[in-house]
Amino acid sequence: MTDHPLVQMRGITKRFGGVTALQDVNLEAYAGEVLAIVGDNGAGKSTLIKILTGVYQPSEGEIFLDGQPLEMASHSDAIAQGIDAVYQTLALADHLTPAANMFLGTELTRKVAGIEFLDNRRMKSEAARVLDERLGVRLRSMDVTTDSLSGGQRQAVAIARAVYHEDLRVLVMDEPTAALGPQETARTLKLIKALREQGLAVILISHSLDDVFEVADRVHVQRRGRRVGVVETANSTVQEVLGLIVGAPANDAA
């Protein structure tokens, strides 16, 4: 873990009409670290990461990547800067193969007589390689449609899509374990740890404090649009974080 943050959000405020979703929020994420964002419904978690991934623009505040101020007009700007997200819905097209999904929007092509064709064979081998090497996932068949995969495998395909870009530095994951059983959850957490080892800054939104304490290094707690605390999981307890989430009087917490 380096001493200066890879991503820094400073004084982020977001208003939707008269509603203030975020009020003066700061966030720091470091390379090689998993930062969890927790909070009750409506605490501003999703809005915060949508600003980080360029989907929303902040009403006030600034974002710095590696100390450089970041201007993002859209999600594709964020991707170009090395910030990508895996959504809860995974954004997979169920009738396509895992490889086709992984390269959806960024297909590999080859030229035959000057005409661009999809290079299905190379996409398939690349997809299998990325899944295996970076995520340790081997699918029984690369030719099936994605809807026949298990929840964890689908997750892996969605993550593989993000990590295929060599310059990916920040990966945001929205509720990756929400729809998964215990086994699949364990597998997904393993994937997240693998990504941390590879030096990514992983930002994880989760409702499950068990998962958070299993995988995250630090926890950023949101409450009613404000950051109410950042704790290190090594020096904290589920109780303390719960207290911050619901706003109970903290006894010994910062």
């Binding site: 954004a91 009738h95 086709a100």
Partner: peptide, 25 residues
């Protein structure tokens, strides 16, 4: 259908318009 962007995106759009939109199709 099998070998071009148009064919690939045709299936993606029919399979999940939202996912296609989100991935930049």
């Amino acid at each position: 259908l099998k070998q071009t962007h148009f064919g690939r995106y045709t299936i993606a759009i029919g399979s999940s318009p939202e996912a296609s939109e989100m991935t930049g199709v």
